[in-house]
């Protein structure tokens, strides 16, 4: 079980308190209806699957309840950094 540092609670907490939320920094288009089918497909379905650094969303679902972003290495599973939602990608 991973330990995840919650940027809001400012402490490392056990993984079971968290929910994974998929790839981070994919903003919902402001005007989806203006998007082509291909662009909408890109937003909806196309995700990175890197070997190594991955930006991802987590929610401290059974803690402070907040979504935040993280950089995690998909090989070692190690978290490099976590930071509040809304901040620029690290």
């Amino acid at each position: 079980m991973l330990l995840i540092h919650c940027p809001y609670c400012a402490e490392a907490r056990p993984e079971v308190e968290f929910a994974y939320g998929g790839q981070a920094h994919i903003a919902r288009p402001l005007d989806p209806s203006a998007l082509s089918d291909a662009d909408w497909e890109q937003y909806l379905y196309i995700r990175n699957n890197p070997r190594g650094r991955h930006h991802e969303r987590w929610r401290h679902a059974h803690g402070c309840g907040r979504f935040f972003n993280a950089v995690r290495d998909t090989v070692t599973d190690k978290f490099e950094v976590t930071y509040p939602a809304g901040e620029a990608a690290r």
């Binding site: 609670c9 907490r13 308190e17 059974h62 803690g63 402070c64 309840g65």
Partner: peptide
């Protein structure tokens, strides 16, 4: 003591 949190 005095601390509280939501957890499982």
């Amino acid at each position: 003591p005095g601390r509280a949190t939501r957890t499982l």
